[in-house]
């Protein structure tokens, strides 16, 4: 069983939900951590998860703009034809840098905002395809993935959006370059 088969839409939904519940528990102070604020620690975990997810999703597409363009033409053909090549080139790098910012904690709150916008766009795009019965792999993590889009893909993207929103609105996180710079986290 490969990592792709394990990290399918259902398990990613479960993992996202688990992280959200961990954060919700910390926010309601159901548990405490020694010397750490549990809510900030949970938000840090969510931030790192979002960053890892986005940077990881971009890696397969960075050097394969042609393959990604083919996927856009096939599955997201409603994007105006003149914008398709630009989308195929820009989106992977936007994902990569946004993921990097989230992982490193440099301008992480702005990166969380971009993450949320991307998730809204992905949710709308995948929903359109699922509603219209388009038979495609979403190309979210790999351009040649065998897993087809389904309601689970929509649910997964919605949960990613929720995690992004939590990071965006959380009071602060640990392990961030912004903290090292002596700035107020995320400001």
């Amino acid at each position: 069983m490969t990592i792709d088969e394990i990290l399918n839409d259902q398990t990613l939904c479960g993992l996202s939900l688990l992280l959200v519940l961990v954060w919700a528990g910390a926010r309601r102070r159901l548990y405490a951590l020694p010397q750490l604020d549990a809510e900030t620690a949970a938000a840090t975990l969510l931030r790192l998860a979002c960053g890892f997810l986005l940077a990881g999703a971009s890696l397969d597409k960075l050097g394969d703009a042609d393959g990604f363009l083919g996927l856009i033409k096939e599955c997201y053909f409603y994007i105006p034809a003149s914008l398709q090549p630009l989308t195929a080139v820009v989106i992977p790098w936007l994902e990569f840098f946004t993921g990097l910012c989230l992982l490193s904690g440099f301008r992480w709150r702005a990166a969380a905002l971009v993450f949320c916008v991307l998730m809204v766009a992905y949710t709308l795009a995948v929903s359109w395809d699922v509603l219209h019965g388009i038979d495609c792999a979403c190309g979210c993590f790999k351009t040649d993935s065998a897993e087809k889009m389904s309601v689970w893909t929509v649910a997964r993207d919605l949960l990613f959006f929720v995690t992004g929103t939590i990071v965006l609105t959380c009071p602060g996180t640990y392990l961030s370059l912004d903290r090292l710079n002596g700035q107020k986290a995320g400001s």
Partner: peptide, 30 residues
């Protein structure tokens, strides 16, 4: 639960930073 820290609200500077991230990524990608 009401004792939890208040959530942060995105401000104008944040949108500017996010836009900057997008523009940087777009130029780098092209």
């Amino acid at each position: 639960a009401s004792a939890a820290k208040p959530l942060s609200v995105p401000d104008k500077g944040l949108f500017r930073q996010a836009w900057g991230l997008f523009v940087f990524s777009a130029f780098f990608a092209v």
